[in-house]
């Protein structure tokens, strides 16, 4: 059984925790996020016939008052960046977090999750900006905590990238 540590990063209130809640097994309550700043869940999955356990470090959202502790990112094999499609500012935070993560863990695979895909009408993030990111090598998945859209495939994508590519 292969285990991998992955992190989930994003601005405050982009819906990280509720996004994965239905897809992971959990033993710690959400209050750890606001106290310790991290909560750990487990995501078992199978990629190309290989069983894999992702230990998902759900890291408290970054805002003006709270910054991500670098020690939490240490040793991760990949990460999910979460941004809120209805708030342009959260994409900017995601960009900063990506830089920070690369500084701590190196160029490990990551996926940008654009959350709240169900609220397309209130979408603030425009296509051209996203295309620019994709051109820089980012992988972007639209997700919805409400419908579950994109979550499972995001885990699959990340897992495949971690197993296939260098650490």
């Amino acid at each position: 059984m292969i285990q991998k540590k992955i992190c989930m990063l994003g601005a405050f209130a982009v819906g990280k925790t509720s996004l994965v809640a239905r897809y992971v097994s959990s033993m710690f309550s959400d209050k750890y996020l606001s106290t310790v700043g991290v909560k750990i869940d487990k995501k078992p999955l199978s990629v190309d016939g290989q069983d894999l356990t992702l230990m998902l470090w759900d890291i408290a959202g970054q805002d003006d008052y709270q910054t991500v502790q670098p020690s939490h990112l240490r040793g991760m094999s990949g990460y999910l960046l979460v941004a809120d499609g209805t708030r342009r500012m959260t994409l900017e935070v995601a960009r900063q977090l990506q830089v920070k993560a690369t500084a701590v863990a190196g160029p490990v695979p990551f996926i940008l999750l654009l959350n709240k895909a169900d609220l397309a009408a209130e979408w603030e993030i425009d296509e051209p900006g996203l295309i620019k990111l994709v051109e820089q090598g980012w992988r972007v998945v639209r997700t919805s905590a409400k419908t579950g859209e994109g979550v499972e495939s995001a885990f699959q994508l990340l897992a495949r990238a971690m197993i296939g590519g260098p650490r």
């Binding site: 285990q3 540590k5 097994s25 959990s26 033993m27 710690f28 750890y32 310790v36 700043g37 991290v38 909560k39 750990i40 869940d41 487990k42 356990t53 230990m55 470090w57 939490h72």
Partner: peptide
């Protein structure tokens, strides 16, 4: 869930 505990302990 020793695996989750070990992660949390590290955190």
């Amino acid at each position: 869930d020793a695996d989750m505990v070990s992660g949390m302990l590290t955190a």
